[in-house]
Design a protein around this nucleic acid. Sequence first.
DNA 1: ATGAAAGCGCTAACAA
DNA 2: TTGTTAGCGCTTTCAT
Lengths: 351, 351
Amino acid sequence: MASTLADVAARAGVSTATVSRVLNGNYPVSAATRERVQRALEELSYVGNAPARALAAHSSDVIGVIVSDVSDPFFGIQASGLQWEAADSGLLAVICNTAGSPAAELKYLRLLLGQRMRAIVLTGGGSDEPEHLDATAALIDQAQSAGTGVVLCGRPAPPGVEAPVIAYDNRGGAQALTRHVLALGHRRIAYVAGPPGHGTTRSRLEGHRAALADAGLGDGAAPVVHGDFSRASGFDAALELMRVASGSTAVVVANDLMALGVIAALRQHGVAVPAEVSVAGFDDLPAAVDAVPALTTVRLPLREGARRAGRIAAGAEPLTAPGRMLWMPAELLARESVAPPGAGLPQWPPR
Amino acid sequence: MASTLADVAARAGVSTATVSRVLNGNYPVSAATRERVQRALEELSYVGNAPARALAAHSSDVIGVIVSDVSDPFFGIQASGLQWEAADSGLLAVICNTAGSPAAELKYLRLLLGQRMRAIVLTGGGSDEPEHLDATAALIDQAQSAGTGVVLCGRPAPPGVEAPVIAYDNRGGAQALTRHVLALGHRRIAYVAGPPGHGTTRSRLEGHRAALADAGLGDGAAPVVHGDFSRASGFDAALELMRVASGSTAVVVANDLMALGVIAALRQHGVAVPAEVSVAGFDDLPAAVDAVPALTTVRLPLREGARRAGRIAAGAEPLTAPGRMLWMPAELLARESVAPPGAGLPQWPPR
DNA sequence: ATGAAAGCGCTAACAA
DNA sequence: TTGTTAGCGCTTTCAT
């Protein structure tokens, strides 16, 4: 059986209160007593009982992190950054995968609420649906009034909630990217978007359209198909584009994972990138630079953003910026997968 | 303030014990009472206090997972699998990144011990050093006798500990891989190993050497340099090999991440893969198939292994196999990055 | 500077 | 079937 505070107190010949004091170091204790207690702690190789502590002190030393899927590098990188920062403050991090399901998100929010977490960090661009937003807002409210901090990383605060948010410039990055594609001379640009009703999908699509509009291009020249941010869905999207958007000389994709899928599909169909068709991604995942051709994309400071979120969640850094929002800039990375227009997407199946 | 069991009990006109009973559903309660309690629960939108529950019941509903770094897909995939499986049993998962540091591993083991976790899963091939192994064994022992289950995923149990282990066939996979390279006619094969003193490094290197020995090749023909499993270290390793192992016609690498780094370095130096030099990896990360040429590698069922580990940790599946060990087979994936011998590694810098 | 004691919110005997 | 009650191991007034 593990030893308790009382065991240590008995062994050191002091009260449990004193042991608690030397443990927490938040109260004066004479050097001599501290010494004795320390020894007793050692001798019994005492390990505190976190749940008991949490119950008595109304404060836990773990933060909750909600992501879509840690095995997706976009979230893995953020989860990692968050965890490191939490550890620096002596906190543990529980990671929850929602697979993008709003219901799962609410479920986890409730579970984490029950754990009386120190803080909860919501990453990724959750659903845009009003009901979901409302439900989320209610839960966040409940968390906050129970003393659980909430920080949003990569998504806006639902209407009515007041919380720190780390905002990635999805719109600006997407606009810069499409502007770059346009500058190279493309006029028929297909777009592979994320899932409908998703915040990130919307922002990136908006940026893309803004660039087209700036160039005097209507949406007619810009067919859009949707994927779900996975590589496989990018592959399928490319096939669909060959049916509905043949002739497009560039495919701008809402994230790198899908862009990789698009490139794989094109390669499989003998379409040269970028000679015949240019492809652009978004996120600058580690794999983007190893792709051949190296993927033109937009870098988002995911690790840095997550670290800031972690520090704020841990209470190690206040977020005093106006609107309690930290704006993380996007950076265009022009590599080889985007070049001047070539032959364009073939029609598939041929007719 | 959040409402408590007592609040609910008062509102439903029953005792807290009754409320606890309907909550846990492990004890008969009349339909009528249950009804009233349920309503009270709803009306107060009751959210249980997990720490209090853990304290009273001596059982938590979270499992701890120790990985090297979730942002490394090798671990991200496993963390994801574990989390999903845990969720199926209603458990939360805390993820700890050690960056491969034995000290960090011990630190987290202690922290998790303090949390009185339901179980702890150790992934990756920790350090081989006897002192570390002993310290780990002691902590695992402490955890087990405190009722915290321990499962090892991808690493052997330290000497003296009795715990379920999910074993990936690193040795067999490595042997099959090098055998494949040999079968294609290579005789001068360089090897990029993982960090020294690491279990996985050792197993894979053993398999590699066993294949060489089978082919009657001594270690003389097989220079080995060490990396740390990161892409950057693979890049550096390739540069070093061009100094110390020029003429090698193939480079077998201990994992895909480093193999990608090797390929990038070779490309940068104008060395064609596989025409001049073949390169093989290990793990079959998602990025392996998008590399050009597609990476010849060994697939490890990481997700499946982690799921099993998760189920065992959650108590949803017993591990009754002999030795409490589940053997996960490796599968050779012969793709394009390994071909018959070419010119071999150039000398660099040239002289 | 230290101790005594009253909880924190819940579970689990034990009674009834 | 339901209630009473004694903890679980720790923190934190309030005394001393």
